[in-house]
Simulated assay, not measured.
Amino acid sequence: MRTEIIISTYNAPRFLHLTLTGILGQDVRPDSIAIADDGSGPETLRVIEAFRTAHPKIPVRHVWHADNGFRKNVILNRATESSDADHLIYTDGDCLLAPGFVARHRQMVRPDRFCSGSLIRLTDAATKNVTEGDVATRRVFQQDWLKARGTFDRTTTWLKSMPFPLPVQSALDALYPIRITWMGSNASALRDAILSVNGFDETMAYGGGDKEFGIRLSNSGVKGRRLRFTAPAVHLDHPRGYRDAEAIRRQREMIGAARSTGKTWTEHGIFPGPDPR
């Protein structure tokens, strides 16, 4: 089984560099990396080229389209369609992946399952001061480091930092009472399962596109498995100027419709049009 990490990004070269640094520190590295680039400029390309030069044994694909507003789902579909990996892990270029992240997603993969993890959110001040060394040495994932930066605002955030052995953390995954949804910054599934529902709905902007996709996966028989306390990612803080209240309202309606109708296929996905099956 070949695993590829698909990283979405848009004009955040420093964040992307830190995300790639975190991938180097994985206990189990992915077989390849795809950068799903929603129209970034040349600084992002320079980060990717520098990473390729420094680490030539790690295949890195740069899947890019021109900047025409928030079109994350479109570029994710292009990256998904063009991948030759069996197992796809999705994250964002503002996330630092805990050392056991890839290994845990790989361990839990099944044809009838998608996996969804969680985020530990840094403050703006902590984000501004994160260094490459913090990530490369794994300090950014240590409880003392996170606590000193005011990250543990609640008990569940502390539990996401994996204070207990993996079997205990796994039990917490199973017991914690929360609806399992696809989290676009920390989720995985087999590529065949993703293609079977035609990928992401390309009409959806920011706010809910990942949930709608996860509902369609679940409707197709690919059920969610929570990795809330066993596959965390540390999230770098940033503004969201692309947030659109009207789009979010419309997309909530689409999420409700997907739940109520049992919809699996989107006509606005990887392959335009109705389900050919």
Rank of each mutant, 00 (worst) to 15 (best):
P99L: 07
G262F: 10
T21M: 12
E267R: 15
F164H: 09
A193P: 07
G22F: 10
C115I: 06
D237G: 09
L122F: 05
I194A: 03
R179C: 02
R179Q: 06
E43G: 01
W182H: 11
L96Q: 05
E43L: 00
P30C: 02
G69A: 04
L16F: 12
W64Y: 14
L172A: 12
F200C: 11
D124Y: 12
A148Q: 09
I35H: 08
P167F: 09
F213T: 05
D38T: 09
D124F: 06
T44H: 00
N77K: 07
K72W: 05
L217S: 04
L159D: 04
N219Y: 08
D27M: 01
L122H: 06
F101P: 00
I48E: 00
A247P: 07
I48Y: 10
R139P: 03
S260L: 12
V109N: 10
A98E: 02
G22P: 08
I75M: 04
G41P: 00
V135C: 07
S260Y: 06
A193N: 06
R259L: 15
E43A: 08
R149Q: 11
S118E: 14
L119A: 14
C95Q: 14
P99F: 06
I58G: 01
S32W: 02
G221D: 13
F70D: 10
F51S: 13
A103K: 02
Q142G: 11
M183V: 12
A36N: 04
L76P: 04
V109P: 03
V197C: 01
Q142P: 03
D27W: 02
T156A: 15
T19F: 11
G199Y: 07
M204V: 15
F271E: 02
H17M: 13
L24G: 03
K72F: 10
S185I: 11
G241A: 01
E246Y: 06
A103M: 05
I215F: 01
T127H: 11
S161E: 01
N219V: 13
E202Q: 14
K147D: 09
I178S: 15
P165G: 00
L119W: 14
D144Q: 10
A247E: 14
K160F: 05
N77V: 14
R121Q: 13
F229N: 07
A233M: 11
R61Q: 07
W145I: 04
L146I: 01
D124T: 05
N73I: 04
H62V: 08
A231H: 02
P232V: 08
N219H: 14
V47W: 07
R154V: 02
K263Y: 01
T19N: 13
F213D: 02
L119F: 15
V130F: 04
L122W: 04
M204Y: 07
F200T: 02
W182D: 00
T131K: 08
S116C: 10
D37Y: 00
V197F: 03
W158R: 13
W182Y: 08
Q143G: 07
E81A: 14
I194P: 05
M108S: 05
M183D: 09
D134W: 04
S185T: 08
S161Y: 03
G39I: 12
I194G: 03
Q251D: 14
R78A: 15
A66T: 13
Y206L: 12
H62I: 09
M1T: 05
S118Y: 12
I23L: 10
P42T: 00
A79W: 11
R14D: 07
F229P: 02
H17F: 08
D192I: 13
F152E: 10
I120Y: 10
V135E: 07
S170Q: 14
R240G: 03
P177F: 08
D275Q: 08
